[in-house]
């Protein structure tokens, strides 16, 4: 029950620190995520034993600034959307990014949490061959190996 209520970071992802940001690679979904400093700090505290209020308290002590719970909720929402948390059974209503910004005020002491994601490319996507529907003159140019002669366009694959 406790695990369902309190956020817990997935342990089956690869992560590396880049300054105060963290790059996370989801091995199951082949998706990469960049967590900015606030999202990364929140993610590290998601051990299944703390609720958002407790995480906000810990963050406030760590960063020596008052961190509102709405900021933590916003981070948890983004981390959840990115599938970086163990799924919670009943997601609760959280304040939107706009509400969180309003609550924080204009001169916020910490950055708003941000999780940016990309889908990892397949080898063919990350190479200089032409993809489907791009113009071609021979089969050799297409990732699929098939250049439709009538329309001079890569097809198949």
């Amino acid at each position: 029950m406790r695990e369902q209520q309190f956020p817990r970071a997935r342990q089956d992802c690869l992560s590396r620190e880049f300054g105060d940001e963290v790059l996370v690679y989801d091995l199951q979904r082949n998706v990469g995520h960049c967590l900015n400093s606030t999202a990364a700090a929140t993610w590290r505290l998601c051990d299944g034993n703390n609720n958002s209020s407790q995480i906000a308290g810990t963050l406030s002590r760590q960063l020596s600034v008052q961190v509102d719970e709405s900021i933590v909720q916003l981070a948890l929402d983004q981390l959840g959307d990115a599938h970086l948390l163990v799924e919670r059974e009943a997601p609760t209503e959280h304040p939107s990014r706009r509400v969180a910004i309003r609550r924080m005020g204009i001169a916020a002491a910490i950055a708003l949490p941000l999780v940016t994601s990309i889908i990892a490319p397949t080898p063919a996507q990350a190479a200089s061959c032409l993809h489907n529907l791009q113009a071609c003159t021979s089969n050799a140019q297409c990732c699929s190996g098939l250049c439709a002669p009538a329309v001079h366009t890569c097809v198949g694959g």
Binding site: R16, F18, G19, E21, V22, L23, Y25, G32, H33, C34, L35, N36, T116, I118, A120, P121, P123, A126, A127
Partner: peptide, 14 residues
């Protein structure tokens, strides 16, 4: 940022 840059490179990792 370094993290955002690394993510862009990840998107181009073969």
């Amino acid at each position: 940022s370094q993290g955002q840059g690394a993510l862009e490179l990840l998107a181009n990792s073969v």
